[in-house]
Amino acid sequence: MSWIDIGHIDDIPLRGARLVKTPVGCVAIFRTAEAEVFAASNACPHKAGPLSEGIVHGQKVTCPLHNWVFDLNTGEAQGADEGRIATYPVRLDGDRILLDGHAVGKRSAA
């Protein structure tokens, strides 16, 4: 792992998300509680809806286009829908959000 500092926890609204541009495409960083973050692909497998714009509830997000719901732990679509979004290692160090650079395709985090 190579942890990259991508910002302060308060840069993401509680129960909201922000985007990070990465070599593997746009990654959404979700803040599900005061100190709880997840990282997953921003693109919904259904019709590429921007998941960072969805409603965040519990540890899930609902796609803003057609209401597919994804579990942010596993990336699996819930209920009758079938699909999966990629998830990436992310963690908090105090107030800072750290994303795993390797997982999102960065060769080295200088």
Binding site: G7, D11, V20, L99, R107
Partner: peptide, 13 residues
Amino acid sequence: RRFHPLADLTLEA
């Protein structure tokens, strides 16, 4: 600011 990406990790690459 909130309408922009939080970070851009593609730049360096």
